[in-house]
Design a protein around this nucleic acid. Structure first.
Lengths: 168, 168
DNA sequence: TATTGTTATACTCTATAACTATA
DNA sequence: TATAGTTATAGAGTATAACAATA
């Protein structure tokens, strides 16, 4: 990786490392906040945030698993934790008896509301503070394109969609 | 997060989400490869790569812990695994009897060499394929600046440097 | 006293596989 | 048969605290 980089030039290598370090530091900082402010992991926050954003505050387990990179059992585990804390409820779906509807409770909404300002504040301080308006536009455009590309690129060996990896 | 976003506008939110998703997908893909090609986790690869890059292929434990986001005990654990596999050796430092010098073995170097092409290839396919030369330059510049900013920004409550988090 | 590193330990998270039930 | 979800279980990883040795 010093010089004889087989395949990536210096500029690419720098961008790659910067990306990984930035996201890792950001992830770390955000996670720390969520834990301190609301005793939530990043994953748990994502689940709650998705529910808060969903119509009527509810989604099926499958829909949740589809967004959060996760195995089904992992989601069940996390949902169990959130359920135990009274932040969500789970009930059988009327449409499809196999499905489980997950619903945010008021307590869940309150927690998200309580935690969001600090979360957003970290992101602004760490990520956006050193950026110009032009940087923001460029970054958003580039990363948006990359994300679409990644979503469209099969993980080398095609895999079933739901649960982006290692589905049991 | 739907509309009444307290503090981040739509553009910022989009860039933030894109960044997190891109890095998460990339991390995931790269990790999968390292495991398949060399039975290495990303962290283990980072440790080996740093050693390969170091003069004479060796670093003190502290220097390693300083680069890889880690607690000391976590590094000891990982070093133990790499040691057991014959990829590194550990020996007391002649200078400072407290320190431990970690050295990559030939087997360690070979493994890194074997794994690197696939690693680099994933990164190119996923991250750089959809980017123009201009994109690359812009991304590198912006993220480089952000990284420097993050490194300089104390984690809200100042902390000792080594072991970027929760040092005992 | 501060620093370096290890150990013991407990805990969180994730994945796998087997299972139930509905479709 | 395929899909939705749970459970049991095992394994990887990480943090904390106590510790030993050296500075």
């Amino acid at each position: 990786m010093s010089d004889p980089t087989p395949g990536l030039n210096t500029e690419q290598l720098g961008a790659y490392f910067a990306l990984m370090e930035v996201s890792s530091l950001l992830q770390y900082a955000v996670d720390e906040h969520l834990r301190a402010d609301g005793d939530l992991s990043y994953v748990q926050f994502q689940i709650l945030a998705r529910l808060v954003d969903a119509p009527e505050g509810r989604l099926r387990m499958t829909d949740l698993a589809d967004g959060v990179v996760y195995s089904r059992s992992g989601l069940t585990y996390q949902a169990g934790l959130l359920d135990k804390r009274g932040l969500i409820t789970r009930s059988p779906s009327p449409d499809d008896e196999r499905s489980v509807m997950v619903t945010v409770t008021d307590a869940g909404r309150e927690l998200v509301a309580r935690v969001l300002p600090g979360h957003v504040d970290s992101v602004r301080r760490l990520l956006f503070e050193p950026m110009t308006a032009g940087d923001l536009a460029a970054l958003g455009a580039i990363l948006g394109r990359v994300r679409d590309h990644m979503r469209a690129t099969p993980p080398r060996s095609a895999r079933p969609r739901a649960g982006r990896g290692r589905t049991g």
